[in-house]
Design a protein around this nucleic acid. Structure first.
Ligand code: FES
Ligand code: FES
Lengths: 147, 147
DNA sequence: AAAATAAAAGAGTTTTTAGTCTTTTATTAA
DNA sequence: TTAATAAAAGACTAAAAACTCTTTTATTTT
């Protein structure tokens, strides 16, 4: 299989965050089984990812009956870039497209100028749009999180 | 380590193609050791990559004394996208940013519109710029292939 | 023809990413 | 206060990507 722009872990993280945001807008909680089937991901693998996002305060969780995952007000206002950075780090926002140890103006690779422009657009998109913004389209039924 | 936008294999492929283009503009050939050290890659790993690019006709090679790798006239005029596709496939040009099985207008993910715009810019860049174009800056001493 | 050279091919190992399964801990409700 | 529920944690396995080492084949030069 050939990788996308984000790692599989990060794809699941983003999709689950959107799913949780969408399902828990009104103070509800949603369980791991429901999330996993809602975004079409392996349940126990997703559990690990959400444990990590929970430790980092990106999502919240509660154990026991009526427990599950949710996202608080502050969380909904976070830019999506925070989810991506938490999982994949920031190399996608700052790293050289050709894998040079450092991307720099003084030692640029042949793709530098063009690549940097594109990379910055992705950065801007993810930094300027909140989790709530993105999941809006789910409320409207326009977008999907699984095939 | 956290991956970039291309696989490590693809990064080495692109860098080596630029290196070979730069070094063999005037009918010369360049050996694997020199390429590997020139782009700072593991020699035997790069050998595998170049064997593959050679089978696909993206680079040319000759065995024996004075042998080595080179790129013919037609090769220099190829867009960089052909190197990327040969190694990483075309999912970077067509795949969903959130990993949905298909990226489509009828079943879009929440990132679809914005992501597609950015993805298409990368596609256009790689399709519209030839290997020769990119390695031009190496001739001028402006860009680098290793730190 | 023999020796030297350099890529091609084959057969691995290591590391990272992805995914699974089981046990423990916390919370709630009967 | 016991049973049920659901996440947290731990210990794995599987697959893919990255990398290494050795042998073979083709070519050229002496
Ligand atoms: S140096 Fe390669 S993208 Fe900046
Ligand atoms: S459906 Fe996700 S990018 Fe098009």
């Amino acid at each position: 299989m050939v990788m996308g722009i984000f790692s599989k872990t990060c794809e699941y993280a983003i999709r689950s965050v959107f799913f949780i945001a969408h399902r828990t807008a009104s103070g509800n909680r949603v369980g791991i089984k429901e999330i996993a089937s809602g975004i079409d991901s392996p349940e126990h693998f997703l559990a690990k990812i959400l444990q990590d996002l929970s430790r980092r305060g990106i999502v919240q969780s509660a154990k026991g009956p009526n427990g599950g995952f949710y996202i608080d007000e502050r969380g909904l206002k976070r830019p999506l870039s925070e989810v991506v950075e938490a999982v994949d780090g920031n190399s996608i926002f700052t790293g050289c497209g050709l894998g040079l140890a450092y991307c720099s103006e003084t030692n640029p690779c042949p793709l530098h100028n063009e690549f940097k422009a594109i990379r910055n657009q992705l950065k801007d998109l993810l930094e300027q749009t909140t989790i709530a913004d993105f999941s809006e389209s789910l409320n409207l039924g326009i977008t999907k999180l699984r095939k």
